[in-house]
Amino acid sequence: MKMKNNTMLFAVLFLFTISGKAQDIFIPKMTNINPVSYTDVTYIGSKDTVLVGTYSGRIAKRIKGNPKEIPVAKIQDEVFSLAYHPKRKEIAAATLEHGILIINAVTGKTIKSLPLKTTWSIAVFFSEDCKYLVTQDQKGNQYIWDASKNYQVLPLPADFPKGTIIAINTQNIATVVSPNKVTYWDRNNNTVQKEVTVDLKKFADMDTEGNFLSLNYNECTKYNSNSHTVAFKVKHPNWITHDVEDYSKVYEDNYSMNLTTAKFARNKMYTASIDRSIRVWDKATGELLKTLSDHKATVHKLRIAKGEKQMVSIDLKGGIFFWDLD
């Protein structure tokens, strides 16, 4: 009898082992995910430390000089954008299927889920004073939540300008960008404070002097909204590749490839491209000053640290670089 029981037990364990191994090869759905790619990066300090997100739902800390990720949270969704609230130590993560998730940055636990009316968001941020959390979905619906009131959604007036909200400053002025107009909306009394006519193909960045950066395929335009003139247009002049066998060997082809993002910082501007490089330009003249070709994949996001002393760049193969700005 004992022999029989033992045999049965072995049989059950064997089947359990086999079934466990067989189940392992199945996935719940097809996603075409690149799990190593960083989808967004945001500073959590004044410099040197950032949070990164991935399509595979990984949120991690990266510190300058440390080649390894420090895991913060793992969610069962794709993460497209991140914002960090330094006082509350909370992360806002824009996801594909769960709207905006509020995550405790210390424990990695999801505290709250903020639903969107339709689709998803690809850019979420806190206002300058961190009082509000702001985003818009892919159908253009705009959202502002009050972070100090447990992320209570704040209704927007019917005449709130259409477009992408890109900032809310400490005076509670919201900057809303559309291809032909930038509106400064005073949220204290719900009125238009200022409207500026612009000509932006794809908004990339703005500075405090009324300059805008706009992208059009491989061309970046610096547009001055005060004079309503194009100051200059720049393109990456070449595609720099490294020899597969000998990385120190560099080749240059006269291709000007698609730009992914552009940023102002101090007296310079920075453009990133699918050519895996970042170019540094003189903000006043548009002169190409430097080429940064350390990335080994498409550079698709740049973030400038507060105080503009550092820039961080991420690529589609999990590459991250911190650049101290002169």
């Binding site: 097809m30 075409n32 995910i33 790619s37 794709e78 497209f80 690809i122 992914t260 698709h300």
Partner: peptide
């Protein structure tokens, strides 16, 4: 490579990388 029915949406859109 994905062979399937139905295939997933591309992860690169008009708004660039990092979205669907």
């Amino acid at each position: 490579v994905i062979m399937g029915s139905h295939l997933p949406e591309p992860n690169f859109g008009k708004n660039g990388y990092g979205s669907r």
